[in-house]
């Protein structure tokens, strides 16, 4: 198999997921090759990092590629893919990769599977992925090659160095991008930095209403911690954006992460899975959060939290 891996970088840093793509490529290439593609204005530095893990690194450089646009990424990738004919194209399942990969697939008339966590090439190309927010898994067969797979971060961390060559692909965009990059916007900074907290009481959809945030705040105060939340709580405006735990919010590693009414979607779990102690309370015994927690309680948080508050008050009063 010839496996292409499209690299990603931002703010001067290669996304570690790019190396994970190469680890996967090296696992499945057989007597083929792992080939990274890095696109931009001046990508030599990234190419060198990638070359450690790739048989070959294709550099695609042009001034117009300084900032990512799906239009031009797809344009140059189509040219290179038509010339080099890879069997599989791996892309990170990120804000960037998740955007241009389906576009690329449609232009190639190629099957695509997104957010993939396992790949099997023993009989055609098969990919495994979650659905139903992590509650089910499916094995898919992609009916033809080339095919496109976007890969979940953190799955293919193990790999060995290969040490390959860096080649200028000699490809330029064939047109201007219709979509223009304007600017990056920095995250808002709030009063509390949850990434610095030792104890986090985190609430999800199960908190049900804005007025119930108080309950979490009371518990957090007694524990000497701060309140954070998962996406639905932030979307509803019940907590500010800088309190969001997850890929699109903050990554936290407190001593205690108490997850109340949080189902445990992957996007959230990636923001808290390295916490030292994770305790989850959820009504749903099948909630994926119990797959990452050290201790779990299947219960209504409104039954457990008031009891916990009472007992903590007794201890503090004593």
């Amino acid at each position: 198999m010839k496996v292409f891996c499209v690299a990603e970088y931002r703010f001067d840093e290669l996304n570690p997921l790019s190396i994970e793509l190469l680890n996967l490529a090296n696992q499945i290439k057989g007597d083929g090759s792992s080939e990274a593609v890095v696109i931009g204005k001046d990508v030599g530095k990234y190419a060198e990092e990638l070359a450690k893990y790739a048989d070959k690194v294709w550099k695609v450089e042009d001034d117009s590629l300084e900032n990512y646009t799906p239009d031009l990424y797809v344009d140059v990738l189509l040219q290179l893919i038509e010339r080099e004919k890879p069997d599989i194209i791996l892309v990170g399942n990120t804000a960037q990769g998740g955007e241009f990969a389906p576009y690329l697939a449609a232009k190639l008339n190629a099957p695509i599977a997104t957010d993939v966590v396992a790949v099997d090439v023993s009989d055609g190309v098969k990919a495994s992925r979650y659905l139903m927010q992590g509650k089910l898994m499916v094995d898919l067969k992609l009916k033809s090659t080339p095919c496109v797979l976007t890969i979940r971060q953190g799955v293919f961390k193990e790999g060995t160095e290969v040490g390959g060559e860096i080649v200028d692909a000699g490809i330029k965009p064939s047109r201007e991008s219709k979509r223009k990059f304007v600017s990056y916007i920095e995250p808002e900074v709030g009063e509390v930095d949850i990434a610095q907290a030792d104890i986090i009481v985190s609430v999800g959809r199960g908190i049900e209403d804005e007025s119930n945030i108080e309950l979490a705040e009371e518990l957090a105060d007694l524990l000497g911690g701060v309140v954070a939340g998962s996406r639905p709580v932030i979307d509803n405006g019940w907590l500010p954006k800088d309190r969001q735990v997850g890929i699109s919010g903050k990554v936290v590693k407190p001593k205690l992460y108490l997850a109340l009414g949080i189902s445990g979607a992957f996007q959230h779990v990636m923001g808290m899975k390295d916490s030292e102690l994770i305790i989850a309370v959820n009504k749903d015994p099948e909630a994926p959060i119990f797959g990452v927690a050290h201790y779990g309680v299947v219960a209504d948080l409104f039954d457990v939290v008031p009891e916990l508050i009472e007992k903590l008050k007794e201890i503090k009063g004593a």
């Binding site: 099957p111 797959g291 779990g296 039954d303 008031p306």
Partner: peptide, 24 residues
């Protein structure tokens, strides 16, 4: 039609140690 479903199943999960009993 570009995909074929081979199998659907419950994901294997490492389970937390579950704490049981009434709320108290």
């Amino acid at each position: 039609s570009t995909l074929e479903i081979e199998k659907m199943y419950l994901p294997p999960v490492k389970k937390a140690e579950m704490i049981e009993g009434d709320p108290s």
